[in-house]
Design a binder for these strands. Structure first.
Lengths: 241, 241
DNA sequence: GCACACTGTGTGCGCCATACACAGACCATA
DNA sequence: TATGGTCTGTGTATGGCGCACACAGTGTGC
């Protein structure tokens, strides 16, 4: 019942006893790397069993000797895309520690935007993901938060980074492409936001200088939002003390 | 250039001038409703052009007279799934107002969990989505926040609800199914979290009473996290004042 | 040296989104 | 009232997808 799915067993390096028959030609991580390469180049849509197999020089169906379904392939991709988290600086305070953690996570998402498109069906159990969890929890170690609250706080930061990423990730921050899309959006919004029906939106648009919309979300807004989240956690810490 | 995509024109009811040829048999909203019905019953995976068409009693290709691609169908679904937002209570303070807004959003996600699986490719421009935006912004009206900060604050709450939903939505809150999955996860985690490599996780698990894991996230944790987010926004308001 | 579990392969199924050509329905115009 | 042109819904087809299944060959543990 607590028996792990095959993919997780492989990721944890739980080798069974030696068996007859040919040895596998490659390892599950090779599949993950090939899939990540495809996704980095062409988005998650470019990842198909046949393309991954072709990338490795194998046939489509051979992959199913390593992975039970495409969803399991996603698990492997998520495990390997981010690499190990940065070490926790024991000298820093909790805000610095969790900020470092969040920025590293954000950078990983920026390198692999497709990660946000993979539906989360269950909480993480793979080795590197647990290391990220470990380091995230460690950030709250000396805050006096209970174990449950620490987990919630970490989850809150995690949710924020993912959410902010969903909005901003996908095109290089501050690129002309993003600015252009943003301008087009504001233009359309101004056209549609009838002041009678949408007074607050209309007023919001009118009272902002044009260059205010050319905001580089990644540079400033991300930290802005993160700080708000951390202020909320700080209030929690104070309340619990 | 600011010409709207066809779907948005239809959603805003921008009818062109009278034209020769047969009148359309139905409206784009019929397609959306049929798709929503399918998604509610069988998840987003159950929504295909052919199934939606069959639901309406039409052929697959007829849908393309109303929608340019499946992505546009998603836009229609998101527009119609949530309905209009609740009216803003002018007597309440900003925390109550945005809390009401967030809970309504959360309830909508609970009714239509598939909404979280639809990748967001651009900010909303459809009528009801703008109404939600309008009401969200209105919650911060008397806080003294700048237009830009109000937008960021609303976005932060929006991100939180979506993120919390991604974790909890999908099965009825507190159902035996969810509790069982949770117990299995904790069991596996305990098995994998070697105290040498993952000391904080291991300690976190050990120091929590067993019934602490049987948490009904939706009931308590959601508000817990939301309050933390709002505390962060409150700190921002205080700083700006 | 041998049995046989296990490897990678080939074929095929049902489903998907959508391109394209077409027949007929309908309305603006004359 | 006649009609031309345009729009509607349909039929057919294409290339891709995930994956089931049967199979041939391989190489290790006995």
């Amino acid at each position: 019942m607590t028996e792990l799915p095959r993919v997780l067993q492989q990721l944890w390096g739980m080798e069974g006893p030696a068996r007859p028959g040919p040895k596998p030609t490659f390892h599950i991580s090779d599949i993950g790397n090939a899939a990540i390469k495809l996704a980095d180049a062409g988005g998650l849509g470019a990842v198909s069993m046949s393309k991954v197999a072709a990338e490795l020089g194998f046939t489509t169906m051979s992959l199913y000797r390593y992975v039970d379904s495409k969803d399991e392939l996603y698990v492997v991709m998520l495990e390997q895309a981010f690499g190990p988290p940065a070490a926790v600086d024991p000298g820093a305070d909790w805000r610095q520690r969790i900020t470092t953690w969040a920025l590293a996570f954000r950078d990983g998402l920026r390198r692999h935007p497709w990660a946000l498109q993979i539906p989360i069906v269950e909480p993480p159990l793979s080795p590197l993901q647990l290391e990220w969890m470990e380091n995230g929890l460690r950030a709250f170690e000396d805050t006096g938060l209970s174990p449950g609250d620490s987990l919630s706080a970490m989850l809150l930061v995690n949710i924020y980074v993912r959410g902010a990423g969903a909005i901003t990730v996908g095109a290089p921050s501050g690129s002309e492409e993003v600015l252009e899309a943003n301008r087009l959006y504001v233009q359309r919004l101004a056209m549609l936001a009838d002041p009678d029906r949408f007074p607050t939106i209309a007023r919001n648009l009118q009272s902002r200088p044009a260059e205010d919309f050319d905001v580089d979300y990644d540079a400033g807004e991300f930290i802005f939002g993160l700080d708000a989240v951390l202020d909320g956690i700080e209030a929690l810490i104070a309340r619990r003390a």
